[in-house]
């Protein structure tokens, strides 16, 4: 069987995830890896929205917040198992995305950016101000998922960090697989078509508003899952997860890695998760160097890291 480039990319990703622990000097790196995967999942959703469909969102952390807080609150108020709470979070996020997506996605460019920004701020304000329920800015504890104990019972004994590394990697690989499937399908072509020319997409029969909404809802589901995983992994959550900075961070990861490419987005998420850790040695200069790297990448690699590098490797740089 001939390997398609989609399967090759996913295999490489799988190999990196599986082999990286061999180079980990300590258990701490499993945690950094898991954080990169959690970010990578949200960013893969943004690849669908920004990279495929060409619609900007500066508020997707809002959906991460909904996913995170559903995992914190649903087990207490509704007695749901955390895993079901995660599912409920995605349903709520998808529902809200569907409701606000209709009016919001009629806007274009920076108007859309500002509208989504408003949504993200709204969510983080609610989370910060509804103190009796959410615990406000001090945050809130999140119940244990319990899957690790279940695995131990059947004889798979992982440390907490190892478990979350593997568990979040599964979600990331699954998310990347789905996004790659979408890219090469009729729906994915419709999204990429309306990105380039809405009028031409309409002319070939694409219902532009409907497809934009699908991309928005899908990316909200990704962000929501990412938020849920973060909450369950940390067993604690604050409104920062829904904050403006987190939204901007996600968009930056998307664009830096290469908005149109799934592996690019994952590389961007990994890079921006790892760099701050690697640069802590430089202390005061950490943020300066981080900013400088981001600027240089955007100036010299406008399509993002991975698309630019893979073009250069194919010798058409």
């Amino acid at each position: 069987m001939r390997l398609s480039s989609k399967h090759l990319t996913l295999l490489i990703l799988l190999a990196i995830v599986a082999l990286a622990p061999l180079a980990f000097p300590s258990n701490f790196y499993y945690r950094i890896g898991a954080l990169a995967f959690v970010n990578g999942l949200a960013v893969t959703g943004l690849v669908i929205l920004i990279g495929f469909a060409g619609q900007v969102s500066l508020g997707h952390a809002g959906f991460a917040g909904i996913g995170a807080y559903t995992c914190a609150l649903a087990p207490i108020y509704l007695g749901l198992h955390p895993a079901l709470a995660m599912l409920l979070g995605t349903v709520i996020s998808a529902g809200i995305a569907w409701l606000i997506g209709g009016p919001i996605l009629r806007l274009k460019g920076y108007y859309l950016g500002v509208a989504t920004l408003g949504f993200g701020i709204l969510v983080s304000m609610v989370l910060a101000n509804e103190v009796p329920i959410t615990g406000g800015a001090d945050g809130r504890e999140v119940p244990e998922l319990g899957l690790r104990a279940a695995l131990k019972f059947i004889g798979i004994d992982l440390s907490n960090a190892q478990f979350w590394y593997a568990f979040t990697a599964l979600f990331l690989l699954g998310g990347a697989w789905v996004a790659s499937n979408l890219h090469d399908s009729a729906a994915g072509r419709a999204l990429r078509a309306l990105h380039d020319s809405e009028i031409a997409a309409g002319t070939v029969g694409v219902d532009v508003a409907r497809y934009k909404l699908s991309a928005f809802v899908l990316s909200a589901v990704y962000a929501s899952l990412s938020g849920s995983l973060l909450a369950l992994m940390n067993k604690f959550i604050t409104p920062d997860v829904a904050g403006f900075l987190h939204s901007v961070e996600l968009v930056t990861m998307t664009v830096l890695g290469g908005a149109g490419s799934v592996p690019g987005a994952i590389a961007g998420a990994t890079l921006l998760t790892l760099l701050p850790q690697a640069l802590t040695a430089l202390q005061a200069y950490e943020h300066m160097i981080l900013g400088l790297i981001m600027m240089l990448v955007m100036i010299f690699m406008r399509d993002g890291l991975v698309p630019t590098l893979s073009r250069a490797l194919r010798g058409r740089g």
């Binding site: 789905v178 499937n181 090469d184 419709a190 990429r192 997409a201 070939v204």
Partner: peptide, 17 residues
């Protein structure tokens, strides 16, 4: 993409190939 109307189907089917 010009074949969209004949190629389109359920979004879920496209997501899971």
């Amino acid at each position: 993409t010009g074949r969209h109307l004949k190629a389109r189907g359920s979004l879920v089917a496209d997501l899971f190939s």
